[in-house]
Design a binder for these strands. Sequence first.
DNA 1: CTCTAACCGAGACGGTACGTCTCGTCTTTTG
DNA 2: CAAAAGACGAGACGTACCGTCTCGGTTAGAG
Lengths: 203, 203, 203, 203
Amino acid sequence: MFGAVTSADAPTPPKIGRPRSERARLAVLEAAADLLMEGGLGAMTFESIAARAGVSKVTIYKWWPSRGAVAVDAYFHRHHEAYSFDDTGDVAHDLATQLLLLIRAFRGRAGEVMAELIGQAQSDPVLAETLRSGWLQPRRDATAEVLRRAVDRSQIRPDVDIPTVMDALYAPLYWRLMMRHQPLDDDLAGELVRNTLDGVRPR
Amino acid sequence: MFGAVTSADAPTPPKIGRPRSERARLAVLEAAADLLMEGGLGAMTFESIAARAGVSKVTIYKWWPSRGAVAVDAYFHRHHEAYSFDDTGDVAHDLATQLLLLIRAFRGRAGEVMAELIGQAQSDPVLAETLRSGWLQPRRDATAEVLRRAVDRSQIRPDVDIPTVMDALYAPLYWRLMMRHQPLDDDLAGELVRNTLDGVRPR
Amino acid sequence: MFGAVTSADAPTPPKIGRPRSERARLAVLEAAADLLMEGGLGAMTFESIAARAGVSKVTIYKWWPSRGAVAVDAYFHRHHEAYSFDDTGDVAHDLATQLLLLIRAFRGRAGEVMAELIGQAQSDPVLAETLRSGWLQPRRDATAEVLRRAVDRSQIRPDVDIPTVMDALYAPLYWRLMMRHQPLDDDLAGELVRNTLDGVRPR
Amino acid sequence: MFGAVTSADAPTPPKIGRPRSERARLAVLEAAADLLMEGGLGAMTFESIAARAGVSKVTIYKWWPSRGAVAVDAYFHRHHEAYSFDDTGDVAHDLATQLLLLIRAFRGRAGEVMAELIGQAQSDPVLAETLRSGWLQPRRDATAEVLRRAVDRSQIRPDVDIPTVMDALYAPLYWRLMMRHQPLDDDLAGELVRNTLDGVRPR
DNA sequence: CTCTAACCGAGACGGTACGTCTCGTCTTTTG
DNA sequence: CAAAAGACGAGACGTACCGTCTCGGTTAGAG
């Protein structure tokens, strides 16, 4: 996974002074993750994290710029959904596997929390950027690689726009997660892959 | 449009007593819409609406169940994006037209506000339901009708799952609105329609 | 006594809106007075008053401009040291009686608290003004009257500066209260009166 | 002057280890005095002293027991008001001279700071004791000596209580400094001396 | 033509969380 | 061993909104 997203990225780690307390960092992440799972973002206040973690509010403010930042770090601290693809040579299968993994992760509490994170990101630019660079981009990069290989193997027409294809595959999933107008069934994976690849198959 | 979404649906309209003040209702919606446009959902607090509308907080609480409810009403009070489809007999064209309309609406402030509404809905079930039934469902119903006609005209295979097709068409749009990982260009409309219909065209 | 010093002095009592809660006002004063007596000014935080009084912090901030203001109000709410003078015709006796009253009040907790109030006033101009106008001035006015009568009766030379005489009488008392370099004995009253009047007696 | 009041009185000067940094001591006193003059006691926080002096907070804590202690040291580091008396043989003159010196020192910033120190001492026993022993007592000792000589010279009745006389002379001055109900004029000195000595002159 | 029910404005109130500040302590490295 | 640097737990600060609660005043139809 991609570990700490927003904090502890000191470019030149200063050596003098008391070092950052690893205990506090972990306590915060654990407490935040607990609160997130129990009551959602709304329950995960700086105040309640501090209380549960036995850490002072200032310490949290010092290392995380916003509530969303803590939330993402806490979420990823707990959920390490894999996004490494198998490469079986069968695009359809590889994509479907990956989609299914996400679908299953999104059914259940983790999905609700992810939805809340994306939701909160709509009014928190820092959180939005964190989600983009820490969550979305790595997954898109990996998927793009798979699709590029499929183009090389002539399983996909070379003139299709890969970003659009990726959106066709993944956006419906997130959209159902957020609007819940349709269920997140297992067979959605196959259906999305089939429809999408049918549309980009070489003629 | 669908007007008041959450309020004024008194089942048995009571006749006695002072009637609801239309002045107050409009003042609230105008003030809320202004605030929404100026500073987003975060700036649209009950307190600030009341102050700007010259209306007491209690009056707002009386007629709208939550902040989100006011927000949606205010949004729709101001933005009446059409969603009636032309029916030219050319599915591809009709869908692309409709998508383009939405894309253009979503570029600009209204799109940002819509994103915030959807975002807020992730932690406000009432708002979520309002958005589903007041915004999403009507559009999906209309689109479904178009697709059904296309099936009738054998432009689409009869075994495809219409809800999934609709998600393939629209979800990427909302997904880009919310994550902003790709631009909301005009040509996205055509591309989505082409890819999607290619995937569901009769063989 | 002089009741509320800093609050509730609304010049034109507005009639609209929920009226101020007398319950809250009293609860604050009682709680503040308790805390003042138990732990001094330092223990009388807005936070602790609010908690003990079952009143929200905002309510306190609304009606009292500063911690000192609450303290003075609370002090006077509890301690109503009389400062009305007998007028026996014997200046020496009248002054000594009054001084003794104050000396006895200042021995004990109330004295310590008064010292803290005066102390705090050194860095809180509002509190300083409150103490001057609400505590000191009324007492000085009454004493001045006594001295003026003594001048009329030729017990005091007509050319003496009354404010200076009052300081000669009272300042040592406050000074001992604050520096505690000498005890606040009962006989200090007589001694001060004797020395002072000897110095201003007609020749 | 009486130099460092609370610190640097190590009974057995430790010889081993790194010696105390004189640079740090002076930097602290200078910074503290500056802050004291600029913004009063409230602005002279441990934090701000450390920052301005380029000294670590711990170093300050190590050598001064409380904020008040630093304040007094800093005050005396900067203000060396003389309190040595001339002995002209004329009590009235000697006392008036000394009072005038103090009055003039107390008009202006130094007086305000002194008032704040005395004020703070009301809730800081250590500071109170420091002020008593480091500021008040030396002055009272010197004044007592002057008065005792006056008794010897039969300028004052032998049965008067010297401490009370000293309070009659000096308390009004401090009292006006703190309450500011009357100005600290130059002629206050003469008036106080005249009234007081008139009251204790041999008959 | 009053009565009465519901509405409305104003604003006080008890709460919860915010983000900041300073305190006094603790834990490192550097001199 | 002292000092600097700075992280940390603690807890009060003053503010912002929340959702609720009086108030006094209004606006209708019903009696």
